[in-house]
């Protein structure tokens, strides 16, 4: 028996992991902090900045709003694409007019939001649970971040430290390096799609859901300068197959107008304020309009350290 064999027998025969702990760890991948990632939705960015301002720009309502009755199940034929373009352009105009927040690389983007998710590891229509979620993520991706979740129904707060060690930085959540014009943003999307998914995807004429996915990852719990955030919206306005629902209620109970895209049996929507076109939240629904996840952005702020209230 050499020294390596002896070391192999050291602490060998560990008890298998507690199945409950394992199930919990697996579910956490899809649970509140992560579940909303399945929604290819534009997130927070603009939103919070927008909400933080009591009064912002009030882009004009579209000249000819399409008359569509409020409905849980979107009807693509009822909402012409032009309407979705108008909503997204108005959203771009709104966020583009918000003052830029000043962000240092060593700071954190703090986002507070309400999340409603179906309970359990599967999206099979389990009971819906409401969480208050707070996230503090490193602006330049080089510092450990923090995410906390608290159930509305009570119980302990769940805390997850997001580690970003030297040599393995996290994705920066403050992106000052992105294009500020629509064409530039579309090119940036396309390059990233090639990089992530391979050229076969980017050369397809309509890599639409991929662009939405990228936009969601980019903006969900991050902050973009207003001009770049506006470019994201105007770039998304060129995505094919978007539909509008004129009256929806977000996770915080606010009424808005949504723009969405359908794919793989789910529909992903961004919800905007009906008057200002400020970002309110996002939701993902399955067949029959069943809610898979529903989020409402409450606050966004730039802070110096994780855990610091915005």
């Amino acid at each position: 028996m050499n020294e390596l064999d002896e070391l192999r027998s050291f602490r060998a025969g560990q008890t298998p992991a507690d199945p409950i702990a394992m199930a919990r760890a697996r579910a956490a991948l899809a649970a509140p902090p992560r579940r909303h990632r399945r929604g290819w939705l534009l997130a927070p960015v603009a939103a919070a900045a927008a909400l933080a301002l009591a009064v912002g720009l009030m882009p004009g309502r579209p000249d000819h709003p399409t008359a569509v009755p409020p409905t849980a199940a979107p009807d693509p034929s009822a909402s012409p694409v032009t309407r979705s373009e108008l909503v997204l352009r108005n959203a771009a105009a709104y966020v583009g007019g918000t003052p830029a927040l000043s962000v240092r690389p060593d700071q954190f983007v703090f986002v507070e939001s309400i999340h409603v998710n179906s309970e359990g590891p599967a999206d099979d229509g389990g009971p819906l649970v409401t969480f208050l979620r707070r996230s503090w993520l490193s602006a330049d991706g080089t510092r450990d971040g923090l995410v906390t979740d608290r159930r509305k129904s009570g119980g302990p707060e769940e805390r997850v430290v997001i580690t970003c060690p030297p040599g393995h930085p996290c994705q920066p959540v403050y992106r000052a390096d992105l294009p500020t014009d629509t064409d530039g943003m579309l090119r940036w999307f396309k390059d990233l799609i090639t990089q992530r998914y391979g050229s076969d995807r980017s050369t397809k004429s309509t890599p639409d859901s991929y662009a939405w996915s990228i936009a969601g990852d980019l903006l969900r719990e991050g902050y973009l300068p207003p001009a770049s955030a506006a470019a994201v919206f105007t770039a998304l306005a060129r995505v094919n197959g978007l539909t509008v629902v004129e009256s929806v209620t977000d996770a915080a109970g606010r009424t808005g107008v949504s723009v969405g895209i359908d794919g793989k049996g789910t529909r992903s929507e961004i919800i905007f304020d009906r008057a200002t076109y400020a970002y309110l939240g996002e939701r993902v629904s399955g067949p029959g309009g069943r809610i898979i996840s529903d989020t409402a952005q409450l606050r966004l702020a730039i802070v110096d350290r994780p855990g610091q209230p915005g």
Binding site: A25, R26, L29, T163
Partner: peptide, 10 residues
């Protein structure tokens, strides 16, 4: 273990 997979997922 849970954190490892959360980090990996991210």
């Amino acid at each position: 273990n849970a954190e490892t997979f959360l980090v990996a997922f991210r």
